[in-house]
Amino acid sequence: MVNVIIRSNEANAAATALTLAARDHHVCLLSDKVSPGLYQFSYFGEPRNEVLRAVDELKAGAPVIGVVFAEGEDVQAGMQDVLRVASPQLMVIVGGGITGAVEAAEAARRFGLDTSSVLQIGAFLFGGNLSSVRAEKHDVLAGFLGPETPDHLVELALATFPRLSLGNPAAVALSSINALFHVPPMLLNAMSVERAESIRFYVEGFGDSVCRLLLELDADRLRLGAALGLGLVPVQELKARYSGPDAPKGLSLREQVNTLSSQTAALPSSFHHRFLRHELRSSFAPMAALAAAVRVDVPTISSILRLSEILLEEDILDHAARPAQDFLNLMNTHSLSIN
């Protein structure tokens, strides 16, 4: 049993907190929307009652893990909120792509943390919200942002999050499955976004053309990874790993996505929603800057960035140069080769 302090307003953060509480951990969720107390919720279809605790209700003497969500939320502010109330042995950053990794490493140095005690997890671990936990991802990519992480921290991470697949943090940062699955539907359903039409994101909004764009973006990502000396996992295999052994077999990518447990998610009504703006700024824009630095052609990434700049009416690439360079510096701390 460990103490877990989570800082986030994400619905998935509430699902994560409730799941960890159901697994006998003492969990505090620092959220503007959720207070400590007893919660009734559906746990994979089973009615459950679990307590989310205040900071002073955590178990004395037990290890402390801090968790900050980086999907459209401020990594530094989240980490600071956790450090105000505790001194965690392990700090976990959930999502955020390339910018999530570099912002976490920068914040760790600012607050005097060893980056070897900072773990980036490449995707949400649980699907759901405060009323229900519907899904758990399998084989989620994760990596420590500093070299030579002590064995006891690795064991602590895997004991608390047993579905993790630990590996290279640079590969984790370049493997945001959210970015790949969120951006194409936002662009190819642009008129429906503008009209705020009632469309299920992963069903009516996710057709064969969306899948073709997604796979072309992934081809660019894999090409960039190869140039950086990283053997990245193709998106279809990533999804198969995350979905686990119960995922439907023998279906096309579109059919698999259309049958996701999260198929009720609605198409956002703004291009500034994190499904587009955040994913571009955290993943695809830094990828384009990295590609320019190592002289790799990423035509589909470049095209979606230009189109998105028109829709958002802002310059996205202007903010990408620094995180791209910081990412290269982060890679160098792990002695990775760049061709």
Rank of each mutant, 00 (worst) to 15 (best):
R109F: 05
K137T: 04
V27A: 11
T149M: 03
T149D: 04
G128W: 10
A247V: 09
R277Q: 10
S335C: 09
L119H: 00
L187R: 06
S192G: 05
S303E: 15
A293R: 00
K239Y: 13
E50Q: 15
P88V: 10
L330Q: 05
P234L: 15
A104Q: 05
R221S: 10
A17G: 00
E103F: 13
A219I: 05
S87L: 00
F201W: 02
R84N: 13
R295Y: 06
Y202L: 02
P150W: 04
A293S: 07
G143T: 11
L83N: 01
A21N: 06
M91N: 10
A179N: 01
A293N: 05
L215V: 14
S308W: 08
R53N: 08
L119Q: 05
L174D: 07
L187S: 06
V172M: 11
A266K: 15
V2D: 03
H138D: 12
F124N: 13
Q263Y: 14
L238H: 08
S175P: 01
D297K: 07
N12H: 14
S308H: 05
P268R: 00
N258C: 13
G127F: 08
Q325I: 01
A219N: 11
L166E: 14
A60G: 07
S269M: 04
S87R: 08
V172W: 09
E279F: 10
A179I: 00
G100E: 10
E237L: 12
H182Q: 11
D114T: 07
P286S: 05
C28K: 02
S31T: 10
R295T: 01
Y242N: 10
E314F: 07
S337T: 15
R274K: 08
C28W: 01
D315W: 02
N332P: 01
L238A: 11
Q89R: 07
D24I: 07
F284M: 09
L312K: 06
N178W: 07
E204C: 01
L156N: 01
E309M: 03
A101Y: 05
G95V: 11
A142F: 03
N189E: 09
S35K: 15
Y39S: 08
I199H: 02
S303A: 15
V233K: 05
R48V: 12
Y242F: 12
D139N: 15
P63N: 13
A104T: 05
V94D: 04
S116Y: 04
I304M: 06
D56L: 12
N12P: 12
M91S: 12
S261D: 13
P248N: 04
A190F: 06
A62W: 14
D56K: 13
R223N: 06
A291H: 07
T300N: 11
F275T: 08
A293W: 01
P169S: 09
S302W: 04
G250A: 13
S131L: 11
V75K: 05
L130W: 09
R274N: 07
V51E: 13
F275K: 09
A108V: 07
G127S: 08
V235K: 00
P185H: 05
R7P: 06
I121F: 04
D114H: 04
L267F: 11
A190T: 06
I199F: 02
D318H: 04
D24G: 09
L174W: 01
G146A: 03
R110L: 12
R200I: 02
V34L: 02
V133C: 06
V94Q: 10
R163M: 15
L305C: 02
G61W: 09
P245Q: 03
